[in-house]
Design a protein around this nucleic acid. Structure first.
Lengths: 121, 121
DNA sequence: CAGAATCCCTGCCGATACTG
DNA sequence: CAGTATCGGCAGGGATTCTG
């Protein structure tokens, strides 16, 4: 059991899910990678996200210490996002998840066929 | 871009998230590991889950080909759940996520302190 | 024992318009 | 450019009761 910020988790994986789960967070982290992206650039690489959701998710990632936000006080405004060390430490996991999904999709038909045959025995 | 079951994903990681995301799925998979668990046993190891949610999530995992469901036609009923090969192939990821969460929680204070100092420069 | 059925509600997420 | 503000849908999740 693990406590963190007023929440209790049975397993530390629940914490991981709470931190990078949801529809956008993992995708944002993955697109950042070791690059630095401006807000408008993020909107281009993740075209489906609305400004509200993007801002909200970025703020939560910042609060978790996974993303850094660098503000240039100038006009027009400029803000750059990048991963912190903690954020970078997630990249191997995200990479593996990405590859797993790819492989899963490729083998889906084949696997389901096998399961079906096993069931009919 | 990747299409799967009437859904489109920008990245195969989105597919992975769709398959094992949500509040319970990863936890269910993790607890199964290489064991076989009965329905009632699963309720014990994941005490917070309601029967409705547990059944629903197990069915979705079964439809995805990640979990096997073995029914013993007897009275009283007995149903055993276990991971398929595809499900087992997720275990390394789940394991890494678990360790990452643990490590994140341990180093949180320290990391946040560092970020704060960096900001004040 | 292993669930199905029913009712209900929160909060995630989206669309659109507006602003320093 | 980098966001807020406002409104609102709806699906994910929950509590409780019932059944083969």
């Amino acid at each position: 059991m693990i406590k963190f910020k007023n929440n209790e988790y049975q397993c530390s994986m629940e914490l991981t899910i709470a931190l990078i789960g949801g529809k956008w967070k993992a995708l944002i982290l993955w697109h950042l990678g070791d690059k630095t992206l401006r807000y408008s650039e993020m909107r281009k690489v993740i075209p489906n996200v609305t400004p509200k959701m993007l801002t909200q998710q970025l703020r939560e990632l910042e609060d978790s210490g996974l993303v850094k936000r660098l503000i240039y006080t100038q006009i027009p405004p400029k803000v750059e996002y990048s991963l912190t060390k903690a954020g970078q430490s997630l990249l191997p996991i995200l990479d593996t998840m990405c590859k797993w999904g790819q492989n899963y999709a490729n083998e889906y038909e084949h696997n389901m066929q096998e399961l079906k045959l096993a069931k009919e025995e």
